[in-house]
Computed example of a mutant assay.
Amino acid sequence: MNLLFLFIYMVIILAVIEIFVILFRLTGLKVEVSRFQVISMMTGTGFTTGESELILGHPVRRKLALVLILFGAFSLAVIISSISQFLSEGLQAKEILIGAGTVITVFLVLKMERVKRLLAKAFNQEMKQNIELADLPVRDVFLKNKEDVLLELHIYEESTLVNQTISEAVKEHDELELVVLFIKRGDVKIRRHLYNTRIHEGDQLLIYGVKEVVLKVLHEDISIMKENQKNRELPSYNLL
């Protein structure tokens, strides 16, 4: 009986994980990211990774996350209580089977393409009605197409951009699908006259554009940044 309970409980947990993976996927989150974050939230471990910002910065995902976190805490209490009831021979297998059947039924319903389309439409409608642009995560604002990219470029002593302006370093920049959003210099963010501002060692440039163009135009500085960060055991460069 104990083994049966543990098997059914695992089936319920796996079904719940897949249910929330589907729901997060319908909000635009990648499957692999969704599954890791769902497990992290359910178990209360690992949710402090950088990818958690994709959930915390999205209003619909935050609501799903709240339900999942509460379920994780509740399910732990249930298994402890159920084991105690097993020991006292007070729990009926029928009750567990009903719970498992309900969760599996929900999972199978969510796998239906028609249901997925309806839910995706409902999520998008809620976003349009209740969410301001400033409330959305960066990925949902800027990275709507696969070819879009945001690059946080750190400038080092040997970078080719040092002591140059963007206008000098990137010829015909007005014709390229590449935009410098701001230059961060210490605690100051420079937003005016960006293309005529001389770049210093230690600056950070936030650049938006087509990935192929950004990587082609700035490949030397990106390589220098990656090498410096690797040698100093810093996190890899931020290319979204």
Rank of each mutant, 00 (worst) to 15 (best):
D140A: 15
K30D: 11
R25K: 10
T49L: 11
F7W: 05
T49V: 15
I83R: 01
F7L: 07
L70K: 10
F36W: 07
S34Q: 08
E147C: 02
V138D: 01
S88K: 10
I104W: 06
R61E: 10
F20Y: 15
Q129S: 13
F107N: 11
T45G: 01
L108I: 13
G44T: 14
R62M: 13
L91K: 09
S40L: 03
V16H: 05
E53S: 08
F47N: 05
E51R: 07
D148T: 04
V60H: 04
G90Y: 04
I13C: 03
F24E: 01
L110Y: 09
F86K: 00
T45P: 03
V60W: 03
M10S: 06
L91R: 11
E126R: 12
I39N: 01
I131K: 09
S82P: 01
F74S: 11
Q37F: 12
S75G: 00
V16P: 05
L133K: 14
N130R: 14
S40Q: 06
N145A: 09
A77M: 14
L143A: 08
L110H: 08
F7E: 00
K146L: 08
G46H: 13
G28Q: 08
L70N: 11
F71C: 03
A65Q: 07
Y9S: 12
I79L: 14
L26Q: 07
F20R: 11
